[in-house]
Amino acid sequence: MTKSKNTIESRIDYSILLPVLILLLVGLVSIFIATNFDYPKNLVQVMSQQVLWIFLGSVLAFVVMLFNTEFLWKITPWLYVFGLGLMVLPLVFYSPAVVESTGAKNWVSIGSVTLFQPSEFMKISYILFLSRIGVWAKQGREVTDLKDDWLLLFQYTAVTLPVLGLLVLQGDMGTALVFLAILAGIVVVSGISWRIILPVVLAFVAGVALFVMVFITDWGKEALIKMGVQTYQINRISAWLDPFTYADGIAFQQTQGMISIGTGGIYGKGFNHLELNVPVRESDMIFTVIAEDFGLVGSGLVLLTYLFLIYRMLRVTFRSNNRFYTFISTGFIMMIVFHIF
């Protein structure tokens, strides 16, 4: 029997690479349109930055392909600690202007130069560390008792709390939800008993429902502010629950985005043709550019491309014989699905 060579070619799954390349191209085109319309003087700078990040990401992806399981397993705890260290930096090195506009200290800035968002690196190291814990806890056992499951859940929680604590200090609750989505996916694939998961899920749903019931009252909002919830966070939730009531103020971006998507119609207005003012559409609201220019057909194809990417990632995950990689893949799938959602 011939022995297959472990070449770079054999490590590339083109059915995953193709949708990624398509989405990168769509992203570049959309950012070009948005920047050309809103900040034409910054077009070359913005596009250069995007191409540079794509290049660096591609190089990093190639380097990671060369890692073997043993090396990745050994460096994972160090990557987690390094990620926590990076998460502290925005609390010290931040731009007051960025904090004023976003309400969060989640970007590392020196002077007027905004460098990077440490939580993006932390997502990777967090997924790796949860995966390592999940594999180590099982240790080849397919069946565990509730005591083992509770212990594993405690370990997951212990790893998660420092990350969430730093995100709370940064004021970045949106990113905290991404980490919770990753945790949920890892917990399910860990095989923790539903006798533990179901009560936790029900308690979480009940907690969210109770929060919404309290939030929609005036006294509830005042109580939340006294408890330390920031005003901009209260405003974001209000805008999400009833956007058009706040269309002239805190929900202006959201409602303009919804109108922009609607005005695209079935086929869109055509390439590089925007009419509505949607604040920060080059990043937060980039989907509005796709929908307004290319309509329901174009935006639907983008969502289908994402769906195909997730489908192929799931296929690879289910076929994997390496439990460590199965956990890692699950974490990244949950991260991407949450961002798409």
Rank of each mutant, 00 (worst) to 15 (best):
I261V: 15
I261T: 11
I261M: 14
I261Q: 02
I261A: 13
G262C: 10
G262I: 09
T263Y: 11
T263F: 08
T263V: 14
G264T: 08
G264V: 08
G264S: 09
G265D: 09
G265T: 08
I266Y: 08
I266M: 06
I266Q: 03
G268H: 05
K269A: 05
K269C: 04
G270Y: 01
G270M: 04
G270N: 01
G270W: 01
F271L: 15
F271N: 11
F271Q: 06
N272L: 14
N272S: 13
L274Y: 09
L274C: 09
L274T: 13
E275K: 07
E275A: 13
E275N: 11
L276S: 06
L276N: 15
L276E: 12
N277Q: 15
N277S: 14
V278A: 00
V278I: 05
P279L: 09
P279E: 00
R281I: 06
R281L: 08
R281V: 01
E282S: 03
S283K: 00
S283A: 03
S283V: 07
M285R: 02
I286H: 00
I286N: 00
I286P: 00
F287M: 12
F287Y: 02
F287E: 12
F287H: 13
T288F: 01
T288R: 01
T288P: 00
V289P: 10
I290W: 12
I290K: 02
A291D: 07
A291G: 10
A291N: 08
A291E: 10
A291M: 11
E292N: 14
E292I: 12
E292D: 15
D293R: 04
F294S: 13
G295A: 10
G295N: 13
L296W: 13
L296S: 13
L296V: 12
L296K: 08
V297I: 07
V297N: 07
V297P: 04
V297E: 07
G298E: 12
S299E: 06
G300D: 09
G300V: 07
L301M: 14
L301A: 11
L301Q: 12
L301S: 04
V302K: 11
V302N: 10
V302Q: 02
V302Y: 08
L303S: 03
L304Q: 05
L304Y: 05
L304F: 12
T305K: 11
T305C: 15
T305Q: 11
T305E: 10
T305W: 06
T305H: 04
Y306S: 01
Y306K: 05
L307A: 15
F308Q: 05
F308L: 14
F308V: 10
F308I: 13
L309R: 03
I310F: 00
I310M: 00
I310A: 08
I310S: 02
I310Y: 02
I310E: 01
Y311N: 04
Y311C: 02
Y311W: 15
Y311F: 15
R312W: 07
R312E: 07
R312Q: 13
M313T: 06
L314W: 15
L314K: 02
L314S: 11
L314H: 09
R315N: 07
T317G: 06
T317V: 13
F318N: 09
F318M: 11
F318W: 11
R319E: 14
R319V: 03
